[in-house]
Structures are given as structure tokens and as C-alpha cells.
Nucleic acid binder design. Structure first.
Length: 276
DNA sequence: GGGATTGTTTAAAT
DNA sequence: GATTTAAACAATCC
């Protein structure tokens, strides 16, 4: 679920509450969900919360960092001290809560992951850029990817445009939801060969991707299924989906019933009329 | 029971 | 080398 906008939502929320807090203990309930040495973070304080594409990074004193990838169903939920949210207790005892970070002031951060593809990794801050995921990341939306570069990348690939968008090594940050949405906005078929897009189409697609992801950040992410923000709340992007999950509903532009197909192993929603 | 699910990596096939 | 496909990670939902 979590694509760039969802991870950014969590990042900005954590950035508002974690800096300055000191780790008291790290409770690991499922060993495979935590990689590296948790002791490297204990008694260390949060310096800042960063993000590389979909990878969340919490930097600590002591030159160590917690790198968190949510993959399909990961959640990072923060429970502030002296509050008794219903979901606080629920997460504390939930069977899919795999790691709990206890801070000295009573704040707790739950790492919850139903499908367990996600992970937290403790590593030296200097080694973050050496991570395979970071090393192979292509230029990233809102960070170091401009329109001209995007157009050049698109025109250099013979693969279907939707496949290219989902390849994090080519362009970083887009996932299946926002690929579907932006292609509809730009009126481009997901199956079209990337290099067959005109310069104008590629430019329009870039603008559409940035627009749809910027809106998504404003709406705190898409919670069509599993995603929750750092305070356990749903985002609202799913209320404004143009195509994702809307199979058989009328296209908002032309009224034609939207179609769904499996394309390169991913659910693909589109309008056969608007997206030639 | 079968098939699908927002991500990524790896291996094998083409 | 580029690309495609499948499988793997595993749980849940419809």
C-alpha cells in the first residue's frame, strides 16, 4: 500500500513528535521484523526523521539510524504518553505488532505488519546510502527528478509505460495506485510502449504524477485497505480515486465503464476510451 | 477453495 | 543486455 505519499505522511507526522525523545527499550516480538542490533539505538535520542522514496529513516544520536520499509502492509503507529487511545491498547496486544519502541517519556512506537514483508533495520547512519535499496533507487519525485529527466527516461524504454513507472530503479516513488491514477489523468494507456509516448504525453504524465501524489500527501495517503498514518488514522485519497478499484463504475470523463485487468502481474484499472 | 492485495528481490526464461 | 515471468516473503479478505 504505502507509496511515496503514504510514507511521507508518516514521516512528517513522526518528525513532529519524535525528535528529542530517547529510546528506553526496544521490544522485538517477531525476530524477522527487526534486522541489525537493537542495542545500538537504546539510550539514543532521535535527531530527525527522513525518507528516501518509500524508505523511512529515523536518525539517532550515536550515529545510528532505524531504516523502516513498510512494503505492502506495514504501519508505524505512535502513541503519545498520557493518552489512552483505543488503538493504543489494541496495537499493544495485537498479534501483528512485531516491534515496539519504548521511549523514556512514555511515548511508544508500534511497528505493525500483517503480511510481514516490511522490516526495521538498525544500522550506522553512514551506511544508509550503501543499502542496496538506496543504491539502486532511480531519481525520485519531488527530490531529484525533473520533467526533462523523466521524459528522457520514458523515451529510452521499450517497456509498457506502467511497468516503467513501477520500476523503482528507473523512477522512484510511484506505486500501483498512483500509476493507475496518473495514467488515467494523462489519458495514456497503461500498455503503451514508453518510447511511443510523445514528448508532450510524457510531460503531461510527469505533471499528472506529481499532481496526484501531491494531493495524496495533502490527504494523508490512501487507505483503501490497510494503510494507517502515524496516529492510526485513515487517509482520504481513496474517496477521490478516479480509477483504482472502480472497475465497472463509469469513467468520470466519458462515462464508459472502467475496466480491470491483470497486467504484468499487477491490478490495472483504466478507461478503454480515454486511455488509448 | 481460488484468487486477489498498495512492494521488492531474485532467478529463470525469452 | 533488456525484458518478461514467476516465485518468494505471508495473511487476510471476498
Amino acid at each position: 500500500m504505502p507509496e511515496l505519499p503514504e510514507v511521507e505522511t508518516v514521516r512528517s507526522q513522526l518528525a513532529g513528535i519524535l525528535p528529542g525523545l530517547t529510546v528506553h527499550a526496544i521490544e522485538i516480538r517477531r525476530a524477522k521484523s527487526f534486522q541489525g542490533n537493537p542495542d545500538a539505538l537504546v539510550l539514543q535520542s532521535v535527531l530527525r526523521v527522513r525518507r528516501f522514496s518509500k524508505l523511512l529513516l529515523i536518525d539517532f544520536t550515536g550515529h545510528h539510524t532505524a531504516a523502516i520499509h513498510l512494503k505492502m502492509t506495514g504501519r508505524v503507529i505512535a502513541a503519545l504518553p498520557d493518552t489512552s487511545y483505543v488503538w493504543d491498547v489494541a496495537y499493544a496486544i495485537h498479534k501483528h505488532t512485531h516491534v515496539i519502541v519504548h521511549f523514556t517519556n512514555g511515548t511508544k512506537v508500534y511497528f505493525h505488519d500483517q503480511r510481514t514483508f516490511g522490516y526495521i533495520q538498525a544500522l550506522p547512519t553512514a551506511d544508509v546510502t550503501l543499502l542496496h535499496y538506496v543504491q539502486t533507487l532511480g531519481p525520485e519525485f519531488f527530490r531529484n527528478l525533473d520533467q526533462a529527466t523523466f521524459v528522457r527516461i520514458v523515451q529510452g524504454s521499450t517497456r509498457p509505460i506502467k511497468v516503467l513507472l513501477l520500476d523503482q530503479q528507473k523512477v522512484a516513488g510511484v506505486g500501483n495506485i498512483y500509476a493507475n491514477e496518473a495514467l488515467w489523468i494523462a489519458g495514456i494507456s497503461p500498455m503503451m510502449r514508453a518510447k511511443d509516448l510523445s514528448r508532450a504525453q510524457a510531460a503531461l504524465l510527469f505533471v499528472s504524477l506529481e499532481s496526484v501524489m501531491k494531493d495524496a500527501i495533502r490527504c494523508q495517503g490512501a487507505s483503501s485497505d490497510n494503510f494507517r498514518d502515524a496516529f492510526g488514522q485513515k487517509g482520504t485519497v481513496q474517496d477521490h480515486f478516479r480509477v483504482y478499484g472502480r472497475v465497472k463504475y463509469p469513467c468520470l470523463r466519458c462515462g464508459t465503464p472502467l475496466q480491470k485487468m491483470m497486467f504484468m502481474g499487477r491490478g490495472t484499472y483504466y478507461c478503454v476510451v480515454c486511455q488509448r
